[in-house]
Design a protein around this nucleic acid. Structure first.
Length: 280
DNA sequence: CCCCAGGTGAATA
DNA sequence: TATTCACATGGG
């Protein structure tokens, strides 16, 4: 058991952070959050300014939750109007966790035209079947399967993980990651727009999935993923000229560029706060 | 039976 | 370039 006492200037709302849908491998169970990060099976809870956890050391947890990122400063920089102000007040302490690029990429390929519970089922199904077992005092957990392992799984077996028509895309991505083993490092070294363009060359990765991966795994905080919810919120609060309900590529670009300009270099945080506050 | 969900690719005009 | 459609799956 390890603890971290949060300083007043490093706020964290663990429940919002793990429950908002940014990462798909956390489950709430009897007062604790259980999840897998890399090869760590972690059990964690928050009581006020006290974080208590098993399965990882304090530096690992600080890094995952980006506790060294100055959240009050970040939020002050995006706090431009009453709408985002209310979201910040409501979800204060929500942080963007540092996800692993490979798992994040596959997760968001699996997140198209579906809902969060279904994505979680798909990811955990792949992990249970093809990941490595982690024995912990709280049971057996499974790592997310490495690219080489997933690349070796036949189409029919991946289909059984309920990926549906996304199965082809996951197969392709696995082959890509095996062939370009340094893809994540290379992407991280590129400017945002170039990294985005490179990601979108993968089948099954459009603007939305690319922006999610860049925001959640690569720390490009200017990324502003536009899903059906965010489009709705942006149309209501900021861009009343938007009509209809489907988001064309041109319209997607208009929204994300407006947000990048309006909220600044941490537009991605604004996105996540607006997304999270939709359910109160 | 319908519509919707953290969309995307392919065909078409 | 812009529109339209199919797509597996599960829930309401």
């Amino acid at each position: 058991m390890t603890t971290i006492t949060l300083r007043p200037d490093e706020p964290l709302d663990l429940n919002r952070t793990l429950g908002c849908g940014q990462a798909f491998r956390w489950e709430a169970a009897d007062g604790w959050w259980q999840g897998v990060v890399g090869d760590h099976a972690i059990r964690i809870r928050q009581d006020g300014d006290l974080l208590t956890f098993y399965g990882a050391d304090a530096p690992f947890v600080r890094d995952y939750f980006r506790l060294d990122q100055n959240l009050p400063e970040v939020l002050a920089s995006i706090d431009r109007d009453p709408v985002i102000h209310d979201a910040i007040r409501c979800c204060y302490g929500l942080r963007l966790v540092r996800q692993q690029p490979w798992e994040c990429l596959i997760s968001y390929i699996c997140a198209t035209n579906t809902n969060i519970p279904a994505v979680k089922r798909r990811v955990s199904s792949m992990a249970e079947r093809y990941g490595e077992a982690i024995e912990s005092p709280f049971g057996t957990a499974y790592t997310f399967p490495r690219p080489a392992v997933l690349a070796g799984v036949c189409h029919a077996d991946l289909w059984d993980c309920k990926l549906g028509y996304r199965t082809d895309y996951v197969c392709d991505a696995a082959a890509f990651a095996v062939e370009h083993s340094g893809w994540a490092e290379r992407l991280a070294s590129l400017p945002f727009e170039e990294a985005r363009y490179e990601l979108m060359r993968l089948r099954g990765v459009g603007p939305k999935a690319a922006d999610c991966v860049l925001l959640f795994a690569f720390g490009f905080f200017e990324a502003f993923p536009v899903d059906v919810w965010i489009r709705r919120i942006m149309a209501e609060a900021y861009m009343p000229e938007l009509t209809g309900k489907n988001c064309t590529p041109a319209e997607y670009d208009r929204i994300r560029r407006f947000a990048r300009e309006y909220f600044g270099e941490y537009a991605g945080y604004a996105q996540e706060y607006l997304y999270c506050v939709r359910e109160g």
